[in-house]
């Protein structure tokens, strides 16, 4: 990887400026926890704008340029002896998406959408059925009796719990008959399994959100406060005290 050149701006490295901007924007976003305010709104708008701009540049640089522009205009850069005019077909289809901005011609955007839908449906339907339906069904078909196959009692109990959980949860979502009798009992057990799943989901969500806060606090403390706020102030006091 090429060595990154240190760029300076008014004598300060862009890294220092970047850390200060990131720290200020983080604190601006956190200010929403007290109440909504203009500083928060400013940070939010900057985030949305920069994200969109960054996305456009990256998609152009890493997809449009090497896959469309270079094969047409600079074939040598992508190892071609002659321009590859075939890329004009997907290029034209992509351009048709912009017809949505013109009311009279917006019907043209249906062509690329139809192409994408057809392609992705063809690829997705068999793959999804195999990966998320058949394989998951297979995963549910587990041995339940320890005597018949070589499994421990604990594994057999675990498998039984899995099978009961799947059947009872499916029972809860079966709406073609009233939930009475055996179906009613199964659906009530199904609710219990759903609650366990929601609880696990909630616990993981809490963990994820706290992790994000930890990440920001680590950034503020280790990358900003330590080197660029506390460090210089501490050094200044030591210098003044020493002088």
């Amino acid at each position: 990887m090429p060595e990154a050149e240190v760029v300076t701006f008014f004598g300060l490295s862009t890294e220092i400026i970047g850390v200060w901007i990131a720290a200020c924007l983080t604190l601006a976003i956190f200010s929403f926890l007290y109440r909504d305010n203009p500083i928060y709104k400013l940070a939010e708008h900057i985030f949305v704008g920069i994200s969109a701009g960054y996305g456009v540049v990256i998609v152009y640089q890493e997809s449009v340029k090497p896959d469309l522009v270079n094969p047409l205009l600079h074939p040598a850069e992508v190892g071609l002896a002659h321009p590859n005019y075939l890329v004009l077909i997907p290029g034209a289809l992509g351009l048709l998406m912009f017809s949505r901005f013109f009311r009279r011609y917006d019907w043209l955007s249906r062509w690329p959408i139809a192409f994408v839908m057809g392609l992705y449906s063809g690829a997705a339907i068999p793959a999804t059925i195999q990966a998320q339906f058949i394989e998951q069904l297979r995963g549910t078909m587990q041995p339940l009796l320890p005597g018949l196959v070589d499994i421990s009692v604990w594994t057999a109990f675990s498998n039984l719990l899995l099978v009961v959980g799947v059947l009872c949860t499916l029972g809860y979502f079966y709406f073609s008959r009233p939930h009475r009798g055996a179906l009613g009992a199964a659906s009530r057990v199904g609710i219990f399994f759903l609650m366990v799943a929601f609880g696990a989901g909630f616990g993981n969500t809490v963990m994820a959100r706290i992790s994000l806060l930890i990440g920001r606090v680590q950034f503020l403390y280790f990358d900003w406060w330590g080197p660029y706020v506390y460090g210089p102030i501490h050094a200044l006091f030591q210098h003044v005290g020493g002088g």
Partner: peptide, 16 residues
Amino acid sequence: TAVMATDLYPYLQTGQ
């Protein structure tokens, strides 16, 4: 990310 964990555990059990 932890948010996605419960969605992906079934794929561990199947070996996917």
